[in-house]
Amino acid sequence: MSDSHATETRPVNVEGWAPGAFAEPVLAEEQHVHPTVWTYVKVALVLAALTAFEVSLYYLEPMLGSVVPPLLLLLSAGKFILVVGFYMHLRYDGRLMTALFTGPLLIAAVIILTLMALFLQFVPRVTMAAH
């Protein structure tokens, strides 16, 4: 972390230091790019298509079998990323914002999976009534 990028030519404010002179380049990368309305509509169309795919997988499960649950999780993850990336602007906001959200998200995912494992949800249940 160096302040070498600070230049003496910048105008100074009442504090006697140049605004932005001490900004951290790693963090300050919010780009003021706004996607167009058409981008938003395209994303909505993709979201709808993915949802349709998900629901058809549900009905095809008797045919496809155990490949369906991972596929469904993958598809919902795709929808999740689309909404977070485009509608919530994480694609355009700084990396710090993304870290603020994905860190907790990962911890939550680890806890869900660990608890499911501890409650034997990944062990085939032989005693359960056949459905």
């Binding site: 972390m1 302040d3 504090e15 002179a21 001490f22 951290e24």
Partner: peptide, 8 residues
């Protein structure tokens, strides 16, 4: 404050 980087 200005100059107060994370590692300071």
């Amino acid at each position: 404050a200005p100059g107060m980087t994370l590692m300071r």
